[in-house]
């Protein structure tokens, strides 16, 4: 994967499949500490201790069609390569929190890439449930996006409409640019 946002797209689908009602995607750059923290927090079905121990292995998957599952191991490998750390906490029936930390200045850290495109793709894939919350911050600057607010403004329309998805991507791109102190 060439972009962090592609890892996010891949792994949030695990939360969707876990039946989450809310998935929070937290991306926090801390330039002073030279770290980037990516957290994916869901309230899905969770994993028991045995699966949790196994799931960072490429040879663990809940699918029955194949014997490999590469999403989690690839992000773990990347975090470790970037002098960071990877952790997963989960409770059956409560949800799962995935946490990946990277050294911001690591030469191996891929760019964030098209995060608005990732959000557009996630919402198209799961337009009704879960709700997605994106928290994007750099130091003290913060941008938050919540599909519940869009849903409320649209009065019950499906979010999986091309025009709505385009607006969402544009709105997120604008919010990210503000946090970074640039303009689109």
């Amino acid at each position: 994967m060439f972009e962090l946002s592609l890892h996010i797209l891949d792994l949030v689908q695990n939360s969707v499949r876990a039946g989450a009602t809310v998935v929070t995607i937290r991306i926090a750059y801390d330039p002073d500490a030279d770290t980037l923290l990516i957290e994916l927090i869901d309230d899905g079905c969770g994993m028991d201790e045995a699966l949790l121990q196994r799931v960072t292995s490429p040879f663990a998957t809940t699918r029955t069609t194949r014997k490999v599952g590469l999403g989690i191991p690839m992000l773990k490998q990347l975090a470790e390569l970037c002098e960071g750390a990877f952790s997963l906490r989960s409770q059956v029936g409560k949800g799962t929190t995935l946490s990946a930390r990277f050294k911001m200045s690591s030469i191996d850290l891929p760019p964030m890439g098209d995060l608005p495109g990732t959000m557009r793709s996630l919402i198209l894939g799961a337009p009704d449930q879960p709700e997605f919350v994106l928290e994007y911050s750099m130091g003290q600057q913060r941008f938050t996006f919540d599909t519940r607010e869009v849903r409320q403004a649209l009065g019950g329309l499906s979010l999986a409409e091309p025009d709505i998805l385009s607006w969402i991507a544009g709105y997120i791109a604008q919010g990210m640019a503000e946090v970074q102190g640039t303009t689109l």
Binding site: V150, L154, L157, E161, D163, G170
Partner: peptide, 17 residues
Amino acid sequence: KSFADLEAIRQKTLDKV
């Protein structure tokens, strides 16, 4: 882009649906 745009998008989308 602001949330105010969504009202116009809503109208347009309803027609399409």
